[in-house]
């Protein structure tokens, strides 16, 4: 039984991200959060950074690469990008960066709305084990998580964030190549 990592304080990481991002935000910046955890984080960052363009949200269900094996999940939230993507400098926000497949799907969907000038990836936690050539420009922390565990962001009734480890029921496509 591998020892489980000590998880950092998610609230503290949000504060750090805000400070990292603040000098990078300008008039052309817009933010898009990936449903669900990324959207929670994006709501907080968007407000604290006082970004003038309204916050966009995307649900990548229709762009997943494991759709033919796992189907549509029960509740797909409509994506909502309430600004013109063309020419924008976008901050794409997710809670945890892992294989990179979610980010790939989100990028594909974003480009169906238009052609942004740039896209930078913002995550609260980077757990490594990438399966695609994708990297976060802004990460709250790098966390090593044992295989078979998933790192999740939880939000309590007061809106406070906390990390949690969960045993994965279905590893399927998300399992890194070469894993048992």
């Amino acid at each position: 039984m591998p020892t489980l990592p000590v998880l950092p304080d998610a609230e503290q990481l949000v504060d750090q991200l805000v400070e990292q991002l603040r000098p990078r935000v300008h008039a052309n910046t817009a933010m898009v959060g990936i449903v669900t955890g990324g959207a929670w984080l994006a709501e907080r960052l968007h407000k604290r950074l006082a970004i003038s363009a309204p916050l966009g949200l995307i649900d990548i269900s229709f762009y997943r690469d494991d759709y033919s094996s796992s189907g549509l999940k029960a509740s797909v939230k409509p994506s909502h990008i309430p600004f013109d993507v063309n020419g924008r400098d976008l901050l794409l926000v997710d809670d945890v960066l892992y294989t990179g497949r979610t980010t790939r799907a989100a990028l594909n969907e974003l480009f169906d709305y238009g052609r942004p000038r740039s896209v930078q990836l913002v995550v609260l936690a980077d757990r490594d084990e990438r399966q695609l050539p994708i990297a976060a420009q802004f990460a709250g922390a790098v966390i090593q998580v044992p295989l078979g565990q998933s790192l999740e962001l939880h939000r309590d009734a007061q809106g406070r964030f906390e990390f949690a480890l969960q045993a994965r029921i279905d590893v399927g496509n998300s399992q890194p190549a070469g894993a048992p």
Binding site: N108, D112, Y113
Partner: peptide
């Protein structure tokens, strides 16, 4: 419920998803 997520796609620049 799924249909309601598809309504918005018809209003985008690229009216397609790769499903």
């Amino acid at each position: 419920d799924t249909a309601s997520s598809f309504v918005g796609i018809s209003e985008r620049e690229v009216k397609k998803v790769p499903l």
